[in-house]
Design a protein around this nucleic acid. Structure first.
Lengths: 148, 148
DNA sequence: CGATAATTGTCAGGTAGCTAACGAATTGGA
DNA sequence: TCCAATTCGTTAGCTACCTGACAATTATCG
């Protein structure tokens, strides 16, 4: 009812947005007791599962701009969870999870799994597949067009 | 290719996020020449199509927190596009689009339509329907759970 | 070799969200 | 009637994105 006038914008985009924010809110409510944000969690996830990584590569994998990741990393370094080292190429920074970061990681629930379980409980897997296909093709088409 | 390690998180949520940001980037690239952000556009849209509106009601319709809308409205007022008036109940603010706001509005393309056309070009309408259903039910389920 | 081009990370400044806390105004109940 | 509870908007402070500009470094090519 509050949505009566939303009918014009009853689009995939509108619901994608709403699901994204619901998802993120849930993840952050899970992570808040540990003092982590959702993107910070994804960074730790990558470092744990891929090992030491160049900051540049990490940005690509997480689909973040260099500048965005720079801020997230700075936060994690300040918290002592991640170490940022300079190697041969002095422009680049190599990221490694610290001991204290790993200790925190081991005590963490997986917020992606928890949220996914709630979101898709009882959903038809075939329909979920279709939803992913539609979203992916829409995302890729729009991404390709912004480049202009 | 950059997504090789994303397989673990090849979820509806991951693609919803990616589509949301692509969508928003496209909308903002369309609106940038006019000095507007996407949420600012939605506020103007509501004021144009619904007429003068209480700030409180607008927040509900746009699914924004009072605090968030407060900032967006402050920006629009500063730009002279929206007027914020106090009425009988002196706690509430009534929002109205100004003449200069309306003039700007009339010169604007509809970024939602433009983006949607690109995103869903050639997509199967039945599959789009399914995607919306999946997203809506997922969003509502997660929203219901965060309330805990 | 040496000047120009490209890469990398950071900073500055902007948009879009959130929660928590507060002041002012209104409502409700004892 | 009057005090307590509620409502509404704002502010402050946080996360998470972006673009544009910059310094430092490394690559490239004439």
């Amino acid at each position: 009812m509050a949505d009566a006038s939303d009918n014009q914008h009853q689009t995939v985009g509108a619901w994608a947005k709403r699901y994204y924010f619901a998802n993120r809110a849930m993840m952050e409510s899970i992570l808040r007791p540990y003092g982590l944000g959702s993107t910070q969690w994804f960074v730790l996830y990558e470092l744990v599962n891929t090992g030491p990584t160049m900051q540049r590569d990490l940005a690509q994998r997480l689909h973040l701009e260099r500048a965005t990741l720079s801020g997230v990393v700075a936060t994690l370094v300040r918290k002592g969870l991640v170490a940022q080292a300079t190697g041969a190429d002095q422009r680049q920074r190599q990221l490694t999870i610290t001991d204290s970061g790993l200790a925190l990681w081991k005590s963490l629930p997986d917020p992606v799994e928890v949220t996914k379980a709630i979101a898709l409980e009882g959903a038809d897997p075939a329909e979920v597949e279709i939803a992913i296909r539609v979203l992916r093709s829409a995302a890729e088409r729009v991404e390709g067009n912004v480049a202009d």
